[in-house]
Design a protein around this nucleic acid. Structure first.
Lengths: 229, 229
DNA sequence: TAAAAAAATTTGTGATCACAAATAATCTCA
DNA sequence: TGAGATTATTTGTGATCACAAATTTTTTTA
C-alpha cells in the first residue's frame, strides 16, 4: 500500500482520477523537499509539468493548503512554508504529544508481519543514509513511521500527525549528510524491540528520542540550535 | 473578527472571493449541525443554494474534506461523518491532549481585553442555553474556545484543534436541551478565573472538565454512555 | 407482487475560456 | 545610470460544457 491513503485498507482504482495522481505527486515532492520553501508554485506550471489541465492541480493545492503542507499568501500564491523558530517549536511540541501516544496504540495491534515490515523499511533507511540518498531516506522514514502509526487504527489522530509531518517534511532531507548521522543510535531498532516485548515505556522513549534526534538535526541546520526539551 | 480565519490578524477583503463566502457558509452549516450526518451533499445543490457556480463549492468541499469536516466515500460523494464509538474516543483523547496545552500557552499572552471578551461570550452562551437556541450555542461556544486558543499564538496546534472541532461540531448542538444542562458547573467561568489568577493548574483542570462535560453529553445521547476518562 | 433489468437522471471530474488582479518587463525622464 | 511610471505578461478565480460513473426511476419478467 502506498503511503498516501493513510486510512484506506486497500487501493481501489476503479477509475483513474487525475486529481489523485496529481495529489500524490505533489505530496511526494513536498516531503522530499523538491519545492524550495517560499518559492511560489503556479497551477498552470504544475499542470503542464504533469500533462493535465489546471483543474486537478487546483483541487490538490486546496487540499494541501488545508493540511498545512502549503501556505497560501494573501495574494493567493502558494508555496512551501519557510521554517521559523516558532513553527519549529510547535512542531516538536505536538509531535512529542501525539506520536508516542499513537505508537502505544499501535502496539496493541502489533503482530509479526508488522514487525518484519518495519525491520525491512528500517534497513532501507539505513541503506539510504549510507548512500546519502536524501529522497529515499525521506520517503522511507515517512513509510516507517506511518506504517507503525497506521497500525494504531486511529484515523483521526493519524490525520493530525500527517498534517504535522507535511510541515517539517520538506526539511527531513537535511538529516541525511549531517555530521554524525552514522553514529546516531537507531531509535527505530529500539522501537521495534519495544514492540516485540510489548514494553510501552520503552516504546514511548524510543519514539520520543527518535523525534528529538531528527528534529535536533533540522534545528541545528536551519536555526542553529537543537530542539527545546 | 470572524471565527473562520483562525490565524489572520485582520480581515482584508481586497476582493470578494466567492470561494471564501462559500467556505464560511459551509463551515457554519457544519458546526451548527445543519447537514445530517451521512446525508450526501451535492456540489450543484449547494452551488444553486448559494447562487454561485459549482467551482467555489468544489474547492470548499476539498478543503473541508481535507480537514475531516466532511467525509468522501469511495464513490466520491461527500457527507458529514456519522459519530462512532471509535471516532468519539479518539476525539476525546486528542482534545484532552491538545486543548489544555494550548490554553496554558494562551495564558501567557492573556490581558484584560481578552478576559472581558471571554466573559462577554460566555454570557451569550448562557443566554443561548436558557433560550434553547442550539445554533447560537454552537457558534458562541466555538467562539469562546477559539478566542482563547487563538491567543496562544500557536497556529500549527490551532489548526489541529480546528480539525478536531469540525469533527464533533455537528453534534455540539446536542448539548443544548440535554437534561441537567442548567445544573452544570460553568467551566468557562472557572477557566476565566484561572486566567486572571495565572493559575496554570486550575486552567488545565477547567478546560479538561469542560471537555468532559460537553463530550459526556454527546456520548450519552449518541452512544448511550459518557466519555472514557 | 417483488426482484431483476433497462432507461433516465443526477453527479463528480476534467477541460477550456474570460476576466481582473498580481507580477514581470519595458520605457521614460531626471 | 537608476528610480518611478507604464505596459505586457502571468496567474488565480469563476463560469460553462462534455463525459463517464453513480444513482434513481421505470419497466419488465417470473
Amino acid at each position: 500500500m502506498s503511503h498516501h491513503d493513510l486510512n484506506r485498507d486497500e487501493d481501489s482504482p476503479d477509475r483513474k482520477i487525475a486529481y489523485e495522481t496529481v495529489y500524490k505527486s505533489l505530496y511526494d515532492s513536498i516531503i522530499t523537499g523538491r519545492f524550495k520553501p517560499g518559492k511560489p508554485l503556479t497551477i498552470r506550471g504544475l499542470a503542464e509539468e504533469m500533462n493535465v489541465s489546471p483543474m486537478p492541480v487546483r483541487e490538490s493545492i486546496r487540499h494541501l493548503v488545508a493540511l498545512g503542507a502549503l501556505e497560501m499568501q494573501t495574494t493567493r500564491r502558494v508555496a512551501v512554508s519557510e521554517m521559523t523558530e516558532e513553527r519549529y517549536r510547535e512542531i516538536v511540541k505536538v509531535r512529542i504529544l501525539l506520536e508516542p501516544e499513537i505508537s502505544v496504540r499501535a502496539m496493541a495491534h502489533c503482530n509479526n508481519a508488522l514487525i518484519n515490515k518495519l525491520k525491512h523499511i528500517d534497513n532501507e533507511i539505513e541503506s539510504a543514509l549510507d548512500k546519502g540518498d536524501a529522497d529515499c531516506y525521506s520517503l522511507k522514514n515517512w513509510e516507517f513511521h506511518f506504517t507503525l502509526y497506521r497500525a494504531a487504527n486511529c484515523p483521526i489522530m493519524l490525520r493530525l500527525i500527517e498534517s504535522i509531518w507535511l510541515q517539517f517534511g520538506p526539511f527531513m532531507r537535511i538529516i541525511v549528510g549531517r555530521l554524525g548521522t552514522s553514529y546516531m543510535v537507531d531509535q527505530h531498532i529500539n522501537a521495534i524491540t519495544a514492540l516485540k516485548n510489548k514494553d510501552e515505556k520503552a516504546l514511548r522513549e524510543a519514539i520520543r528520542q527518535d523525534i528529538y534526534d531528527g528534529m535536533d538535526r533540522i534545528g541545528e541546520k536551519l536555526l542553529g540550535h537543537a530542539s527545546p526539551k
